[in-house]
Amino acid sequence: MNDAQLLRYSRHILLDEIGIEGQQKLLAARVLVVGAGGLGSPAAMYLASAGVGRLTLVDDDLVDLTNLQRQIAHTTARVGQPKAESARATLLAINPEIEVLALVERADEARLAELVAAADVVLDCTDNFATRHAVNRACVAAAKPLVSGAVIRFDGQVSVFDPRGGAQPCYSCLFPQDQQFEDVACSTMGVFAPLVGVVGAMQAAEALKLVMGIGQSLAGRLLLLDGLHMEWNSIAIGRNVDCPVCAARDAADAG
């Protein structure tokens, strides 16, 4: 690191658990953020400010006036612009030393497989089960840790699904992909703005810890936040031995 980087990241370097070695790991890291909206905004901003060397943002949506109540990476002047490009401008304004790739697209299975394989950690900041399951399948196949978050109304949740842990569950163990779950949209149900900041920031924290290999991740645990009463609950998540995603991969690897 040069002198400017030592100064920029000095408050991280002062932490014994991080130090120069941990910060260098962040500078060399490649993180994929799927979704540049309510969750993706704060998550990506903290990843950028922390010095993650290469951030890839994937989102095919445009900035809308209704987004600005909670999607803090965007501005009024950018209404109508692609969210990925708007977020990229914000991240580079925070930290011009990092690399930010903005992909204005809805990634299909093949594309997700390519993007996930090139990343060290993946953040699912999307708002629908189809994409969440597609991201999960790609992460399981590539053995890449996935940090998942969701917020609706006054409720939030966050967890880590790390296929490198062997016996750890994947997203499909918690929400089986062969079951029907109703997607609840912010446009119809509403969302309390600060909660996406809380959950998005926690996703960033988990991603940074995974990159540096410090602390204990949320793998095997689901944190639930009741924003109205500001209460957290932690629920243990078990591995589904019949999961068609992670169990099937283990069976294929064994065969």
Rank of each mutant, 00 (worst) to 15 (best):
residue 135 V to W: 01
residue 71 Q to L: 09
residue 141 A to I: 01
residue 155 D to Q: 14
residue 96 P to K: 03
residue 180 Q to A: 14
residue 116 V to N: 01
residue 200 G to T: 03
residue 110 A to V: 09
residue 104 V to S: 10
residue 143 A to H: 13
residue 72 I to N: 14
residue 111 R to A: 13
residue 99 E to K: 06
residue 206 E to I: 10
residue 184 V to H: 04
residue 88 R to A: 13
residue 203 Q to H: 06
residue 133 H to R: 05
residue 85 E to M: 13
residue 116 V to A: 02
residue 129 F to Q: 05
residue 182 E to Y: 01
residue 143 A to S: 14
residue 190 G to D: 07
residue 114 E to M: 05
residue 138 A to P: 05
residue 150 A to D: 08
residue 176 P to D: 11
residue 117 A to I: 01
residue 208 L to R: 06
residue 78 R to P: 13
residue 189 M to C: 14
residue 116 V to C: 00
residue 106 R to S: 11
residue 179 Q to Y: 09
residue 70 R to F: 13
residue 143 A to Y: 03
residue 186 C to W: 03
residue 158 V to N: 06
residue 106 R to A: 08
residue 142 A to E: 15
residue 206 E to K: 04
residue 150 A to Y: 03
residue 179 Q to H: 12
residue 201 A to F: 03
residue 119 A to L: 05
residue 164 R to M: 11
residue 135 V to P: 06
residue 161 F to S: 07
residue 99 E to W: 00
residue 200 G to W: 00
residue 89 A to C: 13
residue 71 Q to G: 12
residue 133 H to G: 04
residue 128 N to E: 10
residue 192 F to P: 08
residue 90 T to Q: 12
residue 160 V to R: 01
residue 116 V to F: 02
residue 81 Q to C: 13
residue 168 Q to V: 05
residue 98 I to P: 04
residue 145 P to A: 10
residue 182 E to T: 11
residue 206 E to H: 05
residue 133 H to W: 15
residue 132 R to I: 04
residue 193 A to N: 08
residue 202 M to E: 10
residue 81 Q to P: 04
residue 124 D to F: 01
residue 140 V to A: 02
residue 106 R to W: 02
residue 152 I to Q: 07
residue 158 V to E: 04
residue 118 A to E: 14
residue 73 A to E: 12
residue 121 V to M: 04
residue 75 T to H: 13
residue 157 Q to L: 10
residue 115 L to Y: 03
residue 103 L to H: 01
residue 143 A to C: 13
residue 163 P to R: 03
residue 117 A to H: 05
residue 73 A to S: 13
residue 85 E to F: 11
residue 106 R to M: 04
residue 91 L to A: 06
residue 63 V to H: 02
residue 127 D to Y: 03
residue 71 Q to K: 10
residue 181 F to Y: 12
residue 63 V to D: 07
residue 207 A to Q: 13
residue 77 A to S: 15
residue 112 L to H: 08
residue 191 V to A: 06
residue 199 V to W: 00
residue 65 L to A: 15
